[in-house]
Computed example of a mutant assay.
Amino acid sequence: MRTPTRSSYDVVIIGGAIYGSSVAWWLTQMAGFDGTVLVVERDPTYTFASTSHTNSCIRQQFSNATNIQVSQFGAQFIRNFRSFMGDNPDVPNLTLQSFGYLYLADTPEFTQSLQRSQAVQSALGTATRHMSRDEIAQAYPFYQLDDILAGNHNLVDEGYFDGGTMFDWFKRSARAAGIEFVHAEVTAITRKGDRVNSVTLSDGTDIACGTVVNASGPRAAATAQMAGLEIPVVPRKRYTFVFDAAQPLDIDLPLTIDPSGVHVRSDGKYYMAGCPPEDDYDAAYDDFDFDHSLWENKVWPAIATRIPQFEAVKVINEWVGHYAYNTLDQNALLGRAQSCPNFIFVNGFSGHGLQQAPAIGRGIAELITYGTYRSLDLSAFDVNRTHRNESFLETAII
């Protein structure tokens, strides 16, 4: 355990995974910010962090303009990663494998929803196409489409990338710029009136702070409760399977969102599939037990039906991770708590977190430095909407 070098910090970030590290790094990029920053991470191996279980995907295909704009900046950041990192020659270039998402609609209602989303996306400059069943069949003849009416597909800035490398360089670059990371757990938060004054670490050390950032992923509610605050974020299990096919496809497989709820895509020479469990319950923070029946009963039947060439496949890897699941509307919860303005939330991404980390990390750093969002207005994600029971409307949830 590294001991903090100070007894007081301007900013204490609780959680050092993708969001803690992104906010920390972006603070080093803010003109005029000269504050001290401490990132507290309970498990620096990140073995069970949501970041470590991500599928590293990015899409423009949302129905809400703010989500689209967030991902558009994410794609820009990935494609210009070394430039954003100060043209450091040690920083690798990131490749965005842009074979896109393909949403398949099997009802008139879903088809109309895809058409509405495509119109919003197109107005913001994305390359999303609304495709008929015949157009899908012509582009991707391996699908079985008897039950499909239409789909949406985008081949530009949509696919997957090396999210682990992005995360690693957020941490490295933040440390190089003077951000402190400490291996500890926050066990208490002291609050007087409408302000947080300090956090207590697992060894009993009290750290005074000017601002606290809750970046603790699926544990966000527990962190908030220490400050007397509530947030509707719970751990939900999500399963991933990597498999080999006896008859591989001769072209890349888009990330295909099947009406069954199963999604599948190319993953190098293999394929990756995932889905929620049938019983999507709130999991314990340390519950990573694997439901091996899910493959046989749900995933494989869905992909073998949709892609008959996948009748003969072999699972070569599998894992389960946690979504930091926002039970209100499955979208980000950001900003200052109304009753405690120096406590900032960056939580509840419900599976969108990695792709949104560049834009939202920047936005939270702006909020801390300047008191407002400057580059992109993220106020639609205001955490205080939970108390007003106002949902952020987004139909494209996976």
Rank of each mutant, 00 (worst) to 15 (best):
M1N: 15
T5R: 03
R6M: 10
D10E: 15
V12H: 11
V12S: 03
G16S: 09
G20S: 06
S22V: 08
A24M: 03
G32A: 13
G32K: 14
G35V: 11
T36D: 14
L38R: 06
V40I: 15
E41S: 07
S52L: 04
N55P: 00
N55E: 12
C57S: 12
C57I: 14
R59P: 06
Q60A: 08
S63G: 13
N64W: 00
A65D: 07
Q72P: 05
Q72G: 11
Q76R: 05
Q76Y: 06
R79N: 15
M85C: 15
N88P: 05
P92W: 12
T95C: 07
S98P: 00
G100T: 04
G100S: 07
Y101P: 08
A105M: 09
A105N: 05
D106T: 08
P108E: 05
F110G: 08
F110D: 13
T111Y: 04
Q115F: 14
S117P: 01
Q118A: 15
Q118V: 13
A119S: 13
V120P: 00
I136Y: 06
A139D: 04
L149E: 12
L149G: 02
A150Y: 00
N154K: 01
N154I: 02
Y160W: 14
F161I: 07
D162P: 08
T165M: 07
T165H: 04
F167L: 07
F167H: 06
F167A: 13
F167N: 06
D168C: 09
R172L: 07
A174K: 05
R175D: 00
I179K: 11
I179M: 03
H183K: 12
V186T: 12
A188K: 10
R191E: 07
R191L: 00
D194Y: 04
S198R: 07
L201F: 10
S202A: 13
T205G: 12
T205P: 02
I207C: 08
I207M: 06
T211P: 03
A220E: 02
A222M: 13
T223Q: 09
G228V: 02
P232I: 12
K237L: 11
R238M: 09
F241N: 10
D244N: 13
A246H: 10
P248W: 15
I251V: 01
D252C: 01
L255N: 04
L255T: 09
I257P: 05
P259K: 01
V262S: 09
V262D: 05
D267R: 06
K269P: 15
D280A: 10
D282F: 04
Y285K: 06
F288H: 10
D291K: 10
S293R: 07
S293G: 03
W295N: 06
K298I: 11
A302H: 09
I303E: 09
I303V: 12
I303P: 07
T305H: 15
P308F: 11
Q309P: 06
K314H: 03
K314T: 15
E318D: 04
W319K: 08
Y323A: 01
A324I: 03
N326D: 14
T327G: 00
T327H: 05
T327W: 10
A332K: 01
A332V: 07
G335D: 11
R336C: 12
Q338G: 01
S339M: 08
P341Y: 05
N342E: 02
Q355K: 12
A357Y: 05
P358V: 02
A359Y: 05
A359D: 06
I360H: 02
L367F: 14
Y370A: 13
T372C: 14
A380Q: 09
D382P: 03
D382S: 03
I397C: 04
I398Y: 05
